[in-house]
């Protein structure tokens, strides 16, 4: 704008609707007050709507949070980010709860000086359950109150479920690794729980093709906690090698692969519109 009036180039851009929203607002304000500039712009309804839409969209464009920016940097397209960002489990409340549980487990490992192995075991045992909870709250009832609308859109079905599940499991695992690295003790602690976590997450998805998702998560999470709890009670300090040793890890890997196969074969059942 030159002096008190809108210059011609700007006015031409305004006319074409190619002006950035912030400047459209400024020009609008000026035009409201200035009859001589107003005479220079054609009052064309298409133009008017065009400009109005630009302003409207700029005002309403959903805010992009840190997660949004991070995913964009990874090269994901905008619309896919929108879908992931709306995943129920990715709310601050969920992230906060997960972080708190992990922090408490790490604190317990430092404070519980008595049997160091048992204190460390708390985190190793709890960490694989967190991705399961994440999967259970990633989609569908009851975590997603809008599931009825989501389920009837063309995006619904196995692909959306797997995208959401993968995202939340990744987030939960990253948080778990950070916590496990902080543990006092040998370095393998940081990774010892990964295969059980993988098994329980994929297993939950696979089992959810048979029973409801929250029930599937409850069954597998419960079996894990009960099994490990029993091992710790019976074998005390030697329970860690038993639960996280080489033989056990091979078992988890094999079971996880089986779960992947089951999930692949039955993935269509992840769609609520599918006959059971």
């Amino acid at each position: 704008m030159s002096g008190w009036h809108v210059d011609e180039g700007l006015l031409a851009d305004y006319d074409r609707g190619t002006l950035p929203p912030s400047r459209v607002l400024a020009v609008d304000t000026h035009l409201l007050a200035c009859a001589s500039c107003r005479e220079q712009v054609r009052v064309d309804p298409v133009w008017l709507t065009g400009n109005w839409s630009v302003v409207f969209d700029a005002l309403h464009e959903p805010r992009s949070g840190p997660l949004h920016r991070f995913l964009r940097r990874l090269g994901l397209p905008e619309h896919r980010i929108r879908l992931i960002a709306a995943t129920p489990a990715l709310r601050w409340s969920w992230l906060g709860a997960t972080a708190t549980v992990l922090a408490l487990a790490v604190a317990a490992a430092y404070l519980g000086r008595g049997g160091m192995q048992v204190s460390n075991a708390v985190l190793l045992v709890v960490a694989p359950v967190l991705p399961v909870l994440a999967v259970a709250t990633a989609y569908g009832p009851p975590a997603d109150p809008m599931h009825e609308i989501t389920d009837t859109t063309p995006a619904a079905g196995p692909a959306l479920v797997l995208w959401r599940a993968t995202t939340v499991v990744t987030v939960a695992v990253v948080m778990g690794v950070v916590a496990a690295v902080l543990l006092p003790g040998p370095g393998w602690y940081a990774v010892a729980w990964l295969l059980p976590a993988l098994l329980l997450s994929v297993g939950t998805l696979a089992l959810s093709t048979v029973i409801a998702l929250p029930a599937a998560a409850g069954v597998l999470g419960g079996i894990w906690l009960a099994g490990v709890g029993t091992a710790v009670t019976i074998h005390r300090d030697s329970s860690l090698p038993l639960v996280f040793g080489r033989t056990a890890q091979l078992g988890y890997l094999f079971a996880a692969m089986t779960a992947v196969v089951v999930l692949t074969v039955r993935r269509r059942r992840l769609d609520p519109g599918e006959t059971r």
Partner: peptide, 18 residues
Amino acid sequence: GLYPQFTAYDLLDYVAVL
């Protein structure tokens, strides 16, 4: 069961993506 923390616009935008 519309997400309470979304604005009307965000919610429409989200379902439009779906």
